Simulated assay, not measured.
Amino acid sequence: MKVTLLGTGDTTGTPTPGCDCDTCRAADEHGVERTRFSVHVEHEPSGDSLLVDFSPDFRYQFLREDVPLPDAGIVTHQHFDHLDGLGNAYRLFEELPVYAADETDPETGESVAETVASKFDYLRPLDARAVTPFESFDAAGFEVTLVPVDHPPLLCYGVVIERDGAKLSLSGDTTYDIPEESREAMCDPDLLLADGIVPAHLSHHHPRGGRHEDSEGVPRTFGTKHMTLEGALALGDDLNASETRVVHVSHFFPADEAFADELAVDGETFRL
């Protein structure tokens, strides 16, 4: 599998529009970006490809990275930075199966699959397909499993993708408090893409602070929805990942920390 990180940033991306912080300026100077989250997975022998989440930056990402349009897609949850790029399906696809969870979200009264179907009902090529968490399914020739994670108030799912003996796990947007059954499904990946929005030392900036501290008191969760950098790396250790890359990275990382090796930037590729 060839994995291309199309978007590695949080909801505003880096650089953030209208921001002149040191980190955004440094990103400009280094010519790197973290656009809104999206991951492209390709099986090069067959040409099959799969997209995890549809970033609002869809058009720009595909032009920039020159990867093939996906044969199928997955949507992990209902936040706009993971979903709204589906509008780009207009006049680009003859048919696009999009897989999403079938569990009803108490917050919205509908499942992610139902949200995809209702919000984009004007897109004739889009075929929203409801799937049940922990039940593997075939998407464009890949074996895919959705696993519940912890991203209140909305239901959210991590993703496990396997083919030809290779395994990619994505944490989805989540705190460190991922259920054990989900961890078991995600374990032993060749590559883990883990949500790490800020370093732990910034947790005091969140009204809820940091949570899920390690044995040394370092928060592995920032507030209520995301892991810290330290939490993301700890998850990689917990899951025995061969390699961990931290994604969903915000511009709140101090400039001298924002481009460390473990933090992904757009355009990185991996062959599993």
Rank of each mutant, 00 (worst) to 15 (best):
T175E: 03
P133F: 03
E110H: 13
L193V: 01
G109H: 06
V159I: 05
L155H: 09
V131D: 00
G141E: 04
L192E: 02
A113S: 14
L191G: 01
P152G: 02
L123N: 13
F134I: 11
E107D: 14
T174F: 04
G196W: 01
P179G: 04
A185T: 13
D105M: 12
G172Y: 00
V144D: 01
E180D: 14
P106V: 09
H82W: 08
G158V: 00
H201A: 13
L191F: 07
D127T: 13
D102V: 09
N88W: 15
A185W: 02
D164F: 08
V112R: 00
P106I: 08
T104Q: 12
F137S: 02
D164N: 14
V198R: 00
P133Q: 06
D102Y: 07
D195A: 11
P179A: 05
S203E: 06
C187K: 14
R163T: 15
E95T: 15
S203Q: 04
F120D: 05
E181W: 09
V198W: 01
T174Y: 06
H205F: 13
L123M: 11
Y99M: 05
A185G: 02
D195Y: 13
G141Q: 04
A130K: 09
D121A: 15
R91T: 14
G165C: 08
E103L: 15
P179Y: 01
A130T: 09
V144P: 05
D127P: 03
A100H: 01
L154G: 06
L202V: 09
V198D: 02
S171I: 05
R163E: 12
L170R: 01
L170M: 15
D195F: 13
A130E: 09
E107G: 08
V160E: 03
R129T: 14
D173V: 14
G87S: 15
A128D: 00
D164G: 10
E95H: 14
H82F: 15
P133W: 06
V160D: 08
H151T: 06
T115F: 10
L123Y: 12
E110R: 15
F142A: 03
V98T: 10
S171D: 02
K167I: 11
S136E: 13
H204F: 15
P148N: 05
T108W: 06
T108Q: 02
V116S: 07
L193Q: 00
P133Y: 06
H204R: 08
